[in-house]
Design a protein around this nucleic acid. Structure first.
Lengths: 336, 336
DNA sequence: TTCTTTCATGTTAGCGCTAACATGCAGCGA
DNA sequence: TCGCTGCATGTTAGCGCTAACATGAAAGAA
């Protein structure tokens, strides 16, 4: 209340200092303070020094909420992922924020938890903060969500897939082809009874279709498909539930490693190379962990952080190619 | 430009519709629209229906930036983590946003990358968005960062540790005691030559001190400490670099699993129980992966998501206990 | 009937900042 | 001397919304 609390070094008063308080203390108008913060080159050195001193004295922190309203630029990007825990999407978030944070953009993070209704709510919540772009994993699950984004008039980047009709920009890879590549490899290895384990989210399902189609095209029986609950480790897909199967494609490395641990318990895991494995296992994601276990995990390697960085780039430049296929790589190790 | 574009169903005009445009269309004042959005009970049903129709027609999305400025409430929380990729902190972010998102709070995420200068910049960047609370992993690395937070006059939650002089609230566990517990267990198991591998961040260092102090107190030689670079997998800490060592505490499970893979290559890993292991290995974090490898990983289990949820709770209620010790648990499996 | 309360809605001012447009002054060539 | 230019700074208005305080009508109380 009393003005003694306002003295430098005494700590903050109740309310945060504003531009015009700084201006008053420095003996300039508020626009000059604003310039010192945003375009210091336009301000004479002595004036600038006085203003900077005043900012330090008061512990001034610009209010970007007010700035955003006045300038219609929030310097923020909305990011929507299904989940961030235990997931390769964390790499993507890392990649994009590494690119955006130095440019002064903040990341507003939301999780859909693979729930379409929650996704729509989160999209609306993100948009109401007026981000300058939205980056999401996959594509909106509902028509409502899609409309929301189309009407938003900001760059939208869909990632981790290559949708046929993207809203705007895309940074991902072809999940169908990844499934094809795995099936092709397993067939070439002489495997006969294929199976797929994983979730039934859109991208996992696309992998499954590629995998199945290729197996059928190569004259194999239709592969088994075991849909795992999101919280299951892959080990619940015990070998017992896949009798006769000699090759498994897991929709992600975590499931693959879990499944291998099931195989190990069942004694159907060798320490030798892929050719020695009674059951081949291929994952997707290329977790570091896959190289540390034994046998080492063969996998489809996808660069989650590159997807994030590319998505960030796509939000910044409106022109140029808007559909970036970052590809994938079949990394063969000892498991299959 | 022309008004035909404004017709319902035709898609958005250049600019997003505002409250007062909705109000005009519904034939009410803007405050009534505002009430329909925020306190619908205060509006008569017929009026409300008319306003809701107008909002739908125009595709109105409230502008929370303006709302935040007017009401001095941003409904956002700043979250600062060292890193989100490949890290247990993702669990914490998941936990806290699961708690906060349903309440209408957005999460503004920033990463310090274990860099003190970047941490300070990120703290300032977060504060300039006027979040209603800040949740961070650990404590500010610098005095500047600390002052920034103390002056911010919002709830601050430090997590993953129990600092002696917290800024405000705390949700974590005692890293020193975790180190003690591991050393105690290894000594009881008859191990003689201990070693510690991990980073030299504040929390890892605290674990090391507890570990070392307890080893010394039990009459053992001072344990070896191998400081790993953040991007190293634990496997670089090959057994070759730790001659004579018969027990290792890794500051996190990823390092532990990496180290075990090194041991496996060196042939010093048994499939039997802990007592059969020439070198005991204990991790920290309790990654699911630890139960899937062989031998299964003994570890200090910490509930990253519970830390996040607790931190969220602490931001919401200003009264009550501000220092929550969520503890840890030594989970003994086959590795040590 | 008249006063009071309750409910539904409106009016006014302002949150803290920035865009856009002044203003004023020094330096300079003609 | 007079513009003219470029630089440093200021003035004004308003971003889209909400808090706080009216207002007016209907419903009950006395």
């Amino acid at each position: 209340m009393s003005s003694e609390l306002t003295e430098p070094g005494t700590g903050p008063t109740g309310a945060a200092p504003t531009l015009s308080e700084v201006a008053k203390r420095a003996g300039v108008s508020s626009i000059t303070v604003s310039r010192v913060v945003r375009m210091p080159d336009l301000v004479a050195p002595e004036t600038r020094a006085r203003v900077e001193q005043a900012m330090r004295d008061l512990g001034y922190i610009p209010n970007l909420v007010a700035g955003a309203l006045a300038s219609a630029r929030t310097n923020s990007v909305g990011v929507l992922v299904p989940t961030i825990a235990n997931s390769i999407f964390a790499d993507t978030v890392q990649g994009l924020s590494d690119k955006l944070e130095p440019l002064g953009f903040s990341v507003i993070l939301a999780q859909s938890r693979y729930d379409a209704a929650r996704e729509d709510r989160m999209l609306a919540a993100l948009l109401s903060r007026r981000p300058e772009a939205i980056i999401m994993v996959g594509s909106p699950a509902t028509e409502d969500g899609s409309r929301l984004l189309r009407n938003a008039r900001i760059p939208i980047v869909e990632t981790w897939d290559l949708p046929a009709n993207p809203i705007d920009a895309v940074a991902g890879f072809d999940n169908y082809k990844a499934g094809v590549a795995v099936a092709k490899h397993l067939v070439a290895q002489g495997r006969k009874q294929l199976a797929f384990i994983g979730g039934d989210d859109p991208r996992g399902t696309r992998r499954w279709f590629g995998f199945r189609d290729e197996a059928l095209a190569r004259g194999l029986a239709e592969p088994r498909r075991l849909i795992l609950d999101r919280k299951d480790s892959g080990s619940v897909a015990a070998h017992a539930r896949l009798p006769g199967v000699d090759a498994v494609f897991a929709a992600n490395d975590a499931h693959a490693i879990g499944f291998m641990s099931g195989l190990r318990k069942a004694g159907v895991l060798r320490d030798g190379p892929a050719s020695a494995q009674p059951v081949a296992v291929i994952g997707l994601g290329d977790l570091e962990m896959g190289q540390l276990i034994s046998p080492t995990l063969s996998t489809i390697s996808v660069h989650g952080d590159a997807i994030g960085r590319t998505a960030a780039t796509l939000t910044l430049e409106r022109g140029g190619e808007r559909r970036i296929d970052l590809g994938f790589e079949l990394v063969l190790r000892d498991s299959g």
